[in-house]
């Protein structure tokens, strides 16, 4: 009966394969880490990859750009003021006859450096403070977070402007001012994450096994918040670049002979009715850098935590 119903397939065609434990347990695909997995997802996000490529390109140009032209970024030349872009001066010259190609890429160094250094310092302080508050909880947490809340309620730009007035202008004061007001957001974020994570079983397991506080924080809690930290870090770089540009624009930022994109844009804005290229060139670089970093940040968020994807 049974054999008839199967039709042409006869019993002889079937052989017993047998059971192999090693084959059953073998993992079909090479195992990939969380970061490899995230990178795989990020690579598929065209907008984020475009952002990444533009950032790498600008960073490269910031390093080699100033040496590609024979002109120095500081040297003034009264016989060649306000020249439009040409074969000699690729981005033209400013009202003092300085070559804008050289100034743009020297400015890129300053702007990108301020953005990255300020964001990194913010992240380090924020992770430390937020991590301590979240992990120890109780009184420590209450005191730290009350302080953070109150500082947070004072508008960021107000803090930064106050610091700049007192510290004076320049690159180092600017970074310091951005950091004084900037780490609070990261501290709140990390604290929230740690509060959630520390109740989880793997932390309990680590505790039971006798791990020290430092080990639990560094080996278990921080790596698990790294995704969120990285996304926030990427997003805070354009914020810092914007703040630098804003402060330089209102006359509180980087001082000549140094240049920065914000400072170039501020000079450009004064003369753009006659020489529009002097504004549009730095404006283009500020905008595309911020756009690229925002796209990359969005991409990273989606790649690191698919649940957050909207």
């Amino acid at each position: 009966m049974m054999q008839n119903s199967i039709g042409e397939l006869s019993q002889e065609l079937f052989t017993h394969v047998g059971k192999s434990i090693s084959e059953m347990e073998a993992i079909a695909r090479p195992s990939i880490t969380y970061w490899q997995d995230a990178w795989r997802r990020l690579k598929q996000n065209k907008a984020a990859m475009l952002g990444l490529i533009i950032i790498i390109l600008y960073t490269f140009m910031a390093i080699v750009g100033p040496y590609m032209t024979p002109y120095d970024y500081r040297t003034t030349n009264p016989s060649e003021i306000n020249q439009p872009p040409s074969a000699r001066h690729w981005f033209g010259t400013d009202s003092l006859g300085r070559d804008l190609w050289a100034r743009t890429w020297m400015g890129a160094r300053v702007s990108l450096m301020i953005g990255v250094v300020a964001a990194l310092l913010n992240a380090i302080i924020g992770v430390l403070v937020g991590g301590i508050a979240g992990y120890f909880g109780g009184k420590v947490d209450m005191i730290i977070m009350r302080f953070v809340d109150i500082m947070y309620a004072i508008p960021y730009m107000i803090i930064v402007i106050l610091m700049m007035v007192v510290l004076g202008q320049g690159i180092m004061p600017l970074i310091l001012a951005l950091v004084v007001g900037g780490w609070l957001g990261m501290a709140r974020l990390v604290r929230g994450q740690i509060l959630q994570l520390k109740e989880q079983e793997f932390v309990l397991a680590a505790k039971v096994l006798g791990a020290s506080h430092a080990r639990i924080i560094w080996r278990h809690l921080i790596p698990n918040t790294m995704g969120v930290i990285l996304v926030n870090l990427t997003m805070s770089v354009p914020g810092a670049i914007f703040s630098e540009a804003f402060l330089s624009f209102i006359g509180l930022g980087v001082v000549p002979p140094h240049s920065s994109w914000g400072q170039l844009a501020a000079y450009g804005a004064q003369v753009f009715r006659v020489y529009p290229y002097q504004l549009f060139i730095p404006a283009f670089f500020i905008s595309t850098t911020m756009l690229s970093l925002n796209l990359l940040g969005d991409g990273l968020r989606d790649a690191l935590d698919p649940r957050l994807r909207t």
């Binding site: 354009p238 540009a245 844009a265 404006a283 911020m290 756009l291």
Partner: peptide
């Protein structure tokens, strides 16, 4: 979000 006001204005 990416284009500052002092770029949009001019």
């Amino acid at each position: 979000i990416s284009v500052p006001g002092f770029v949009i204005g001019p």
